[in-house]
Simulated scan of single mutants.
Amino acid sequence: MKGMLNMKFKQHKKLGLALAIALLASPVALSLPAGQAAAAVTNAKFSIINQSFSIEGVKSSIGTINSKGSTYIALRNLNTALGLGTNFDKKTQVVTVTGHNRILKLDLKNNTVTLNGQLINGQQVILQDNTTYLPLRFLLERMGYEVTYSSASKQIGIKAIAENKLTIQAHSLSDNSGGKKRLVYYPVISGMGNTDVQTKINALLKQEAEKTIALSSQHNEYDTISNSNLKGAFEVTYNEKGKLSLYTSYSMDSGGAHDLHNLVPHTFDLSTGNELTLKDVTEGKASYVTIINDQIKKQIKDRKLDVITPFKTIKADQNFYLTHNGVAIYFTEGELMGAAQGFPTFVIPFSAFK
């Protein structure tokens, strides 16, 4: 099995950590199961700006706040403009947003955010004049919307994504043996018409979580992830047109100066439950490697990326996941760019393979 099982390096000690650092890294925008995600800003006073919106093609103007380059929208406007269910419990200080088979909760008292039962990293919440303002893009993209911005018209576009009819809930496994803390969230799918396929996918994802927990609990001086603290969380990146794509990010503290990370992607054909290859999701084009290579080279130039070695080609079975906008190709830390850059990621538009 791919993924975490490949992280069990049977190497000498002096090579183990070096290999782990070379092969494990964390992308910039992972939703790891941690921390200070929903801290409320109460001291600053922000100006209310009338922002132009196009919501499902209907133009409107809504008062928003801009903070550190992010647009914030009042909780009540999510209900009136988008039809999402919203609630703020003053006693518990919990903001709840519901819709599109999702429940997102922001606990202002404990500074946590959960999505369908999974703790995720988030952005600040602003409380001003007895009104709760939430980060627009962060919130809506996790609630199943596409958010765009036109620099020409200075208009924000919001449109619901046509998703597959299924629900994804977070379940967890934990193991605190050996004085270590291990917690892995994994997705559980429900609501599919084909229950055999649903069972097949759920079994694979749970098995991965179980084996990862087991590996991180082992005691082996030559194993880079033996007896480690472990966190694992998943992110659904694409749930459209009969396909489901997601990744699980793992963060391990094995006693070194920095945590080790890995990203394990899965893309499923929901008609069969089978995993799709990179060639499968690129329209079966014989030239898909060349197409992707050309796109990556162009993006490196356009984005003025400082690569540590000239990019030549991806592997035929390069790791990937799908997004609403295309196929996301990523590289491990130190493979293409400096270690501080995490996983360099390039989204190749679906149109490139037509």
Rank of each mutant, 00 (worst) to 15 (best):
L119H: 09
A257T: 15
L5W: 10
T309S: 09
S249R: 00
N194S: 10
S151M: 01
K354W: 11
K91A: 14
S67K: 01
N202A: 12
V289M: 07
K241V: 12
S245R: 04
I168A: 04
K180H: 07
V41C: 03
A316K: 12
K297R: 04
P33K: 02
L82S: 04
G342A: 05
Q36K: 04
L183P: 02
V147W: 00
M252Q: 06
V281N: 03
P349M: 11
E275M: 13
K91Q: 15
G193Y: 06
D259P: 02
Y149A: 04
T96L: 14
V184E: 03
H219E: 15
V184Q: 05
L115T: 09
S228Q: 00
V281I: 12
I189D: 04
K211D: 13
S254E: 04
K211Y: 11
N43W: 13
A152N: 10
Y238G: 03
A162N: 15
A340K: 04
S251Q: 06
D294L: 01
R137I: 02
P349G: 11
D280N: 13
L183V: 12
T323W: 08
G16K: 03
L136C: 08
T114A: 07
H12Y: 11
P349W: 07
F311V: 02
K8N: 14
T42P: 09
F88P: 10
N239D: 14
N130S: 05
Y222N: 10
V307T: 14
P344I: 06
S249W: 07
K312P: 03
D253A: 03
K241M: 01
L17Q: 13
K243W: 05
I213L: 15
A209Y: 00
T148L: 13
Q93I: 05
N262Q: 05
Y149L: 06
D317E: 09
L244Y: 01
G179S: 07
I291R: 04
A22I: 00
